[in-house]
């Protein structure tokens, strides 16, 4: 586990390999920038971000609204291109991938949980959850069994056939989480996953995620303001104005005071 700021002088290959033969980091960014607009009106949503997140980490990106958390997650997921700098996911440079390869990477290695659920309205809860598995070509019985099992665990049993419009906000978010974690991707990017959930539902969801993290070494990166999530993280990266203000490990259960401090104090 490591964190750095600034530009390293080492060359940056498209595919990373480690000398000791161990797996490459889950995520690495190198002098990452995302700028909107030009000249005097340019806004740097993300700037000078160089971080490394090893496989199996449980990380929270914190920071005030507009600090660049969602943009950073989108850059890591290849949903948007950086203005400068590079991103590697599981050792492969996202910017060097073709569009098709990037889609395949998202399908096979990354699970997304969005703040606004983003379920597909024409699919049932079960179909939404199994969607990535369908795209991967997992056979129907296998994927349905996996969905039903997870649904039971996170309190969605019996709601499989409901369309998103017939589910509460909390239920929809649980379906979205199920969609992200089913098939055990190497990395889950979750943007405010608990924003619309009550405490018990949040607890259940985080429990599932922790289990996946511990048993299958799935890497979790959360964007959140929720102290409940921050408490359970083992590392917090605080962003301010698009750059990393602080990056520190912590014990699960602790909530360092600096995490909640207003900007500039």
């Amino acid at each position: 586990m490591s964190s750095t700021s600034g530009s390293p002088s080492t060359p940056s290959p498209a595919v990373e390999a480690r000398g000791d033969g161990s797996a490459p980091p889950s995520v690495r960014t190198e002098d990452l920038w995302k700028t909107y607009g030009e000249g005097e009106t340019a806004v740097h949503a993300v700037q000078r971000v160089s971080i490394t997140i090893e496989r199996g980490e449980f990380v929270v990106l914190s920071g005030p609204s507009g600090s660049g958390k969602t943009t950073l997650v989108n850059l890591i997921g290849g949903l948007t291109d950086p203005s400068r700098g590079k991103v590697w996911v599981a050792g492969e440079e996202v910017g060097a991938m073709s569009e098709r390869a990037r889609a395949r990477m998202r399908l096979e290695h990354i699970g997304f949980v969005f703040q606004a659920f983003n379920l597909l309205p024409v699919l049932s809860a079960l179909e939404n959850a199994e969607f990535p598995l369908m795209l991967r070509g997992v056979d129907r019985d296998t994927r349905r069994a996996a969905v039903r099992e997870l649904f039971e665990e996170i309190g969605l049993g019996g709601l499989e056939d409901r369309r998103p419009g017939a589910l509460s906000g909390g239920q929809q978010q649980r379906v979205a989480v199920a969609r992200a974690v089913l098939g055990a991707p190497a990395l889950v990017l979750a943007d405010e996953p608990t924003a619309n959930l009550d405490t018990s539902a949040s607890d259940a969801l985080l429990g599932v995620m922790e289990l996946l993290n511990q048993e299958r070494h799935v890497t979790f990166i959360f964007c959140t303001h929720d102290p409940f999530v921050m408490r359970r993280a083992r590392r917090i990266i605080r962003l301010v104005d698009g750059h990393v203000e602080r990056d520190a490990e912590k014990e699960p259960g602790d909530l360092p005071s600096w995490v909640l401090e207003p900007v500039g104090t």
């Binding site: 997921g77 949903l79 569009e99 098709r100 889609a103 395949r104 998202r106 399908l107 096979e108 997304f112 969005f114 983003n118 597909l120 309205p121 969607f131 990535p132 795209l135 969609r179």
Partner: peptide
């Protein structure tokens, strides 16, 4: 538009 964005982010390619 948002739905297509979701589909793309879930791994559906442009084609």
């Amino acid at each position: 538009t948002r739905e297509f964005g979701v589909l793309r982010s879930l791994g559906l390619n442009r084609r």
